[in-house]
Structure formats: C-alpha cells, structure tokens
Write a protein that binds this DNA or RNA. Structure first.
Length: 265
DNA sequence: ATGGTCGTAAGACGA
C-alpha cells in the first residue's frame, strides 16, 4: 500500500492550525511531521486534526520554542523522543507505522548567526547535535526507516540561492555540511528528495525578511526527507509545495514550505 | 555593512 508523507516547519501549530487543516484537506498526506510547534503537547489542537481524519498523534513539546509532532491517518506506535545533547529541547520524536516503518522527525538546532563554536555556543550545540545523531545511527544502524525534518542545513550548492554568498552563512558552511554528511553516512540514509529531483535549484525555506520572497527567491533547502536503503527505492514523487509558502489565509504563512514523498510499501 | 520580519508572550530571545 502506498503512503504519502510530508514534513513542514509550521512555526507555531496553534497560530497556523488553519493552514495545517488546509494542507491536510487539499493534499491529504497519510503522515504529516511538524516542527516548531512552539507549545506543550496538550496545547496542540489535536481534536481539530482528528476531525479531519488524523486521529493519531505523537509529539514532544515545550512552551514557546521548538516542539515536534507526527500527525497520522494510520495508527502510530510511539517509539522514542530523544533529547540529544541534553539541551532540554523538544527536537525529536519517532513513531512506528503499521507497515513497520519507523518515522524519525527532527528539528535540528538553527545554530545562531556566527559559524564559530568558540564565539557562539549555539553553533557548537548544532554541531554536537549532529554528532550525536551520527553516533546514534552508527551504533544502531536503522532499517525500514524514514528521517524527516527541519535539519537547518542546505547541503548542496543548488540547495541555496547563491553558494558563494552563503558559504560562510550558518546553514551552508562546509563544517555543517560535513557533519550532516556524517549523519547520512552513519545511517546509510538516502536523500529521497534529491534521488527523485537530482538536478536544479530546490528550496524549502524563504526568509520573512525579504520584501517579496517569491520574486527575490533567496531560498534554502533546509527541510529533508531521508530513507534507509532497504526502502529508499520505494520512494517516488518527491515534491516541495512552494505555493504553500504564500498561503496567507486563514493565517499568515510559515516561512517553510512542506516537503512530500510517496512510498510504495 | 546593516537591517530587514516573525512568534511567543510580555521584554527579550530565537529564528
């Protein structure tokens, strides 16, 4: 049975519950992974999503910051929710689908502005977070698993609007890309989005600060869908729903667009 | 080189 999965940094699930509802109604993914819910788990409008055919929810939350959730049409068995680097942040939750596929949903630390761990603690925490991800997946090599989320790194030159301008900007520095690659190699993760769309500029995030995000198009691909090699071949139809970045009703948009993939499993 | 915009939650802080 094929199933469709999406990942979306929602930047407050309460403020944008109406946009989530719109995505669920118009696109009907079987599983939707959210990041930056920005609220405790009991404040997620779960009943609203249940009424749309998404009765299953696993989440980690905290007041004001971070927060990850998996909404599903299919039953979810909660597997895990790890506090890597012991930051006390709600940045990971994992659940298992009835077909035995484990879904990891991550919100990797953004890392602040200065790409130097001596001057910027947050940058060091970002690198350490990625190192702990690497060590985890090296120790327990995942099988039949999908990893999605806002990884806050745009690894490829064609994942950013201007590679030369971005190479010293947090999210695209070589040290971050190296750390992300190490996570990928440790788990054997396949970048499903780039498997399906190997060529060309591809973005999932555009800053709020641009006057006209669509015309300026200074985007980055920060949001990812990965899969283990045993199921990566089952993935197809990857897509980033750029128009969603412009949805301004019933609330203002998130600065991220959702990333989709379908798996024939 | 700087400032530009958001969300949370009540003044910054994080992105």
């Amino acid at each position: 049975m094929p199933f469709t999965l999406a990942t979306w940094n929602i930047n407050s699930v309460r403020l944008r519950a109406g946009l989530v509802e719109r995505l669920l109604t118009e696109e009907a993914p079987d599983v939707l992974c959210l990041q930056e819910c920005k609220c405790p788990v009991d404040k997620i409008p779960a009943e609203q999503f249940a009424a749309l055919g998404y009765p299953h929810l696993v989440a980690r939350g905290q007041k004001g910051y971070n927060g990850v959730a998996i909404l599903s049409k299919l039953p979810l068995e909660e597997v895990d929710g790890r506090d890597l680097v012991q930051l006390g942040h709600a940045r990971h939750v994992a659940a298992k689908l009835p077909n035995g596929v484990t879904v990891h949903n991550f919100y990797v630390p953004a890392g602040g502005d200065e790409p130097d761990r001596e001057k910027n603690v947050k940058f060091g925490q970002k690198l350490d977070y990625l190192t702990e991800m690497r060590d985890w997946f090296a120790a327990e090599r995942p099988e039949r698993a999908i990893l999605v989320g806002d990884l806050n790194i745009a690894p490829r030159e064609d994942d950013v609007w201007d590679h030369k301008k971005m190479v010293k900007i947090v999210s695209h520095t070589p040290v971050e890309v190296d750390h992300l690659t190490a996570v990928q190699e440790a788990g054997g993760w396949v970048d499903v989005t780039r498997k399906d769309i190997p060529e060309g500029l591809l973005y999932s995030w555009w800053s709020y600060r641009a006057k006209d995000w669509d015309a300026a198009d200074k985007g980055r691909r920060l949001d990812h869908v990965w899969a283990t090699p045993d199921i990566a071949d089952a993935a197809h139809s990857s897509r980033i729903l750029r128009p969603v970045r412009g949805w301004d009703t019933p609330s203002k948009p998130s600065d991220h667009a959702p990333v989709f993939a379908t798996f024939d499993l």
